[in-house]
């Protein structure tokens, strides 16, 4: 048996397309493996997904456990949970991380229950306690007003789900070498009790989490029409439109645009907050942005505490002038 503790990342894929959160987790898990003097390994389930396993190596996995089976052609809780639980029982990972996506959350709860271990949802920080070597999992608690660090001292694996964009994407190195270990699922289609009868893809999804520029609006817009202005600016900059919960609740824009604790976690190169006060629940979703620019009439607005550039003023003066300036710049006039 390998004495080195195994740090595992479940690599989420659909139709052979890996979710980038898996690579972000491999980056972070690599640091944890180093601190534990352990090995970084990935788990890939699906059908015809060897390419995904190779990608996991390019993103840092030393070894990939691959279950490739027609029963896994699309995600279903039962066969996926069965496969991962079986691998955990065989290899006893020390840590298992999954993305806090629809798929990852559905799966993680089942795996943790089968293994009778702890699971911490939506963590924003992961580190190894230098003394006990336990995983310290930090997450916002009680409406984001405080942070709590959680331990799972006596059960293994230590499990958590992490939202996309919480950790940076590590570098990809296609020349990296690693081992692919093939495993059997040991479950036939007859034993799976849920069948997919249809799938209706969304026509346009708002790709907020992976946008490079986000122009975000809050109650300071004064009404839903204000978003027309922000949409124009976002379009010019090749970005997406974000929003605070207050305006989503008011029905000015759809939930898909919401940034924050109960919305998306984002990490753009530039986050432009217009008429957003910057409540803690909003900040936890956008504080990892490279550069934060805030426009707000209230010099005391908490958003200014984290803004790299804080502009105290009326967004209806600044944004139209900015749109004109961007147009000029892009037209090289």
């Amino acid at each position: 048996m390998n004495a080195k503790p195994r740090v595992w990342v479940f690599v989420e894929q659909e139709e052979g397309q890996a979710h980038p959160v898996s690579w972000e987790l491999l980056g972070k898990a690599g640091e944890l493996a180093r601190d534990l003097e352990g090995v970084l390994e990935a788990v890939v389930l699906g059908h015809g997904v060897e390419e995904v396993a190779r990608e996991a190596i390019a993103y840092g996995a030393e070894r990939v456990y691959l279950i490739d089976d027609p029963v896994l052609a699309y995600y279903r809780n039962q066969p996926y949970a069965h496969g991962v639980v079986q691998l955990c029982r065989k290899y006893h990972p020390e840590i298992l991380l999954l993305g806090a996506t629809t798929l990852g959350r559905d799966l993680a709860g089942s795996i943790a229950t089968s293994l009778e271990t702890g699971l911490t949802a939506d963590v924003t920080g992961l580190e190894i306690d230098p003394e006990s070597k336990n995983l310290i999992m930090t997450r916002p608690a009680f409406g984001g007003n405080i942070m709590a660090s959680i331990l799972c001292p006596d059960h293994r694996p230590q499990m958590s789900t992490v939202r996309p964009r919480t950790f940076p994407l590590p570098p990809r190195d296609p020349s990296r070498q690693g081992e692919i270990v093939r495993e059997e699922l040991g479950l036939s289609e007859d034993e799976v009790r849920v069948k997919r009868v249809d799938f209706i893809p969304k026509d346009k999804t708002v790709n907020l989490e992976y946008a490079e520029v986000i122009v975000s609006g809050g109650r300071g817009l004064g009404g839903p029409e204000g978003f027309d202005l922000l949409r124009e600016l976002a379009r010019l900059l090749g970005g997406e439109v974000g929003a605070s919960r207050a305006v989503v609740d008011a029905g000015w824009i759809s939930y898909e645009h919401q940034v924050g604790q109960t919305g998306k976690t984002v990490r753009p190169k530039v986050y432009l907050a217009c008429g957003i006060s910057g409540a803690i629940q909003h900040r936890v979703g956008m504080q990892n942005s490279d550069v934060i620019i805030a426009i707000n009439t209230d010099p005391e607005a908490p958003i200014f505490r984290i803004a790299d550039l804080g502009i105290v003023g009326d967004l209806y003066q600044v944004i139209p002038a900015l749109i004109e300036a961007v147009k000029r710049e892009k037209g090289h006039e």
Binding site: E116, T117, G118, L119, T120, I136, P140, A141, G144, N145, I146, M147, A148, S149, I150, L151, C152, P153, D154, H155, I280, V284, Q287, I292, P299, F304, R305, I306, A307, D308, L309, G310, I311, V312, G313, D314, Q317, V318
Partner: peptide, 22 residues
């Protein structure tokens, strides 16, 4: 199996520059 180890208030990153349009 999980234990709350510690609770704390999140630290803020240091604010940058402030400009008054007025």
């Amino acid at each position: 199996p999980t234990r709350v180890h510690r609770v704390f208030t999140p630290e803020l990153k240091s604010p940058g520059e402030r400009l008054l349009v007025s």
